[in-house]
């Protein structure tokens, strides 16, 4: 028993020092109340649908989302657009298909099974159009940055005039939360950048929160199923553990009583 306390003590001590060291290094990220955090966390459907709107109207002109398909938009646990809405969204994009019987590629409206249309044909084209910086694919972005959703949220809202003494090259912007403070993306969101159809006021914070919620879903589309299953699994394990504990006591009592 004493050993266990020693280990616990050491772990706590270590984690405190780690935490302190980290806190010294980094500026605290902006926080907001994410609906998907916690044991029962779920996505806010409205936020996901609005977030999709922000993504298509603002981000999608530079950022691809190559692992998403239009069908995902109507799947359970996501924005849950109706099948008809999702079909209509898909049909508003043109994809290249083919070759047809004449051996030629042709354009057609996208279907549910198609992947999200990419803004650029390839990485080189994307770099050429963006001053050498490749706008990262956004499919798993929320998992690909340390700090995750808080970090992306902070960067979206972290644009500032550079402090005196910092000179910026052309096409480089100052961002409080960006690694190295220099970012090649100009501020993407301004109050009223999009017009929400559900009447929500499109403030900078609101849009940032919505689009980051959307990004969390694209990175982790089964998050809701995972939380739900996790609760059941852990509850089940606790019940079984209790049963096994009492079975163990019974079985061991056979020899303990003899001793």
């Amino acid at each position: 028993m004493k050993d266990i306390f020693k280990i616990i003590y050491l772990t706590i001590l270590l984690s405190i020092t780690v935490h302190q060291v980290k806190a010294e290094e980094k500026l605290d990220l902006l926080k907001t109340d994410w609906s998907f955090k916690g044991l029962f966390g779920k996505f806010d459907r409205g936020a996901l649908q609005r977030g999709y709107q922000v993504y298509t109207e603002v981000c999608a002109s530079c950022h691809s989302m190559k692992y998403l398909s239009y069908r995902n938009l109507s799947e359970k646990g996501g924005p849950e657009f109706s099948i008809e809405q999702a079909k209509a969204i898909a049909a508003s994009f043109e994809v290249t298909d083919g070759p047809n019987d004449d051996g030629e590629m042709f354009q057609r409206p996208a279907k549910l099974s198609d992947k999200f249309v990419m803004p650029y044909g390839n990485i080189k084209e994307a770099q050429a159009a963006n001053g050498g910086a490749y706008p990262p694919d956004m499919s798993v972005l929320a998992k690909a940055r340390s700090g995750g959703v808080d970090y992306i949220y902070s960067v979206l809202l972290g644009y500032e005039d550079p402090p005196s003494g910092v000179t910026l090259d052309d096409g480089v912007y100052y961002n409080k939360y960006m690694y190295g403070n220099k970012i090649k993306m100009s501020q993407p969101l301004y109050d009223g950048s999009v017009e929400y159809s559900d009447g929500t006021e499109a403030t900078e914070e609101q849009m940032a929160k919505d689009v980051v919620t959307f990004l969390m879903w694209t990175a982790e589309p089964h998050l809701e199923a995972r939380h739900k299953m996790g609760f059941k699994a852990i509850l089940y394990l606790i019940v079984l553990t209790i049963l096994v504990y009492f079975s163990m006591k019974k079985i061991w009592s056979r020899i303990e009583s003899k001793v």
């Binding site: 089940y236 019940v239 079984l240 079975s247 019974k250």
Partner: peptide, 19 residues
Amino acid sequence: RREFLFTATYAVGAVGVAA
């Protein structure tokens, strides 16, 4: 009671394995 406890443990365990 002991029998019941063991049966219950086995049954719950089997459900978990199936799941």
